[in-house]
């Protein structure tokens, strides 16, 4: 977007990192900041709306709210965590809703910016998850017990353990929050870049380029943009789901009885 405004050069400048640095709306407040607040408000409002008249036989809106809650409750939390899953359903549901709405901002007209194509909040949420599952594991098994569960491969000679334990420690304790946040951020970033490429490319071909061929080809770029918008919708939902599912799975492995 800024590319087109600042550089009306005859050559096409592909969208890049600079496109993710949005100018502040006012003061320090940028578009992603507003989107974060906005997402929390609409999620809360939507959920409140679904339970305004709770009934055994649900209304359509109550059914939607319940289904959303039910997906996290019955097919993520219950499967991943086990017997104590009910305690974590509120956190996981709120997390899923927050991720999903902010991801879908990437394809919602007029907003069209996935909040988590900026890595700050993914880092923060992954850090939160990291604190949560390590806290739960240490609280349940003690520090040594928790380390044994997460870094002590069973039934191997000591010299093999010397090799494997560092790997498992890095994987389970250090790398989990990194992969969790980078997976989300990377998908959102790449997806947004891809859409920018098709839309801005199409725009350039149509309005800036001198070549007739490029002008004729422009609709195809836009069509591809639409196709990838649908694809991005899918990716955004899946990434939100994976983030929550892995969170639940980490909680589950921290609470496992004994290995």
């Amino acid at each position: 977007m800024t590319t087109m405004a600042t550089a009306p050069a005859p050559g096409f400048e592909p969208p890049g990192v600079a496109d993710f640095n949005l100018p502040p709306v006012f003061g320090e407040i940028t578009k992603p900041v507003l989107l974060l607040v906005f997402s929390a408000i609409i999620i809360f409002a939507a959920f409140r709306f679904t339970v305004r008249k709770p009934a055994l036989v649900p209304s359509k809106s109550q059914f939607l709210g319940e289904s959303f809650h039910g997906i996290v409750r019955n097919s993520i939390a219950r499967d991943m965590i086990g017997a104590e899953y009910l305690k974590f359903v509120p956190f996981l549901t709120a997390l899923f809703a927050f991720l999903l709405v902010n991801n879908l901002f990437g394809i919602i007209p007029l907003i069209q910016f996935p909040t988590f194509s900026h890595p700050g909040v993914p880092y923060a949420l992954a850090g939160l998850v990291w604190l949560l599952y390590n806290y739960l594991g240490i609280k349940r098994h003690g520090f040594a017990g928790y380390m044994r569960i997460s870094t002590w491969p069973p039934d191997v000679p000591w010299w093999v353990r010397i090799i494997l334990t560092p790997i498992e420690f890095i994987s389970n304790i250090l790398l989990r929050p990194v992969t969790l946040s980078l997976r989300l951020f990377g998908n959102m970033f790449a997806g947004h870049l891809l859409l920018l490429l098709f839309i801005l490319g199409g725009q350039y071909m149509l309005f800036t380029a001198d070549s007739i061929t490029l002008k004729v080809m422009a609709p195809f770029a836009f069509a591809m943009g639409i196709v990838f918008t649908f694809f991005e919708a899918f990716v955004q939902v899946v990434q939100a789901y994976i983030f929550v599912m892995l969170t639940a799975s980490y909680i589950g492995t921290s609470l496992v009885d004994h290995h």
């Binding site: 990192v17 993710f20 320090e28 407040i29 940028t30 992603p32 900041v33 974060l36 607040v37 997402s39 929390a40 709120a94 997390l95 927050f98 909040t115 900026h118 890595p119 700050g120 909040v121 880092y123 923060a124 949420l125 939160l128 951020f185 970033f189």
Partner: peptide, 16 residues
């Protein structure tokens, strides 16, 4: 692009 914006972290955590 991997560098976080502090204000987003603060607002995001509070909002969430």
């Amino acid at each position: 692009p991997l560098a976080p914006h502090p204000i987003e972290i603060i607002v995001g955590l509070i909002a969430f």
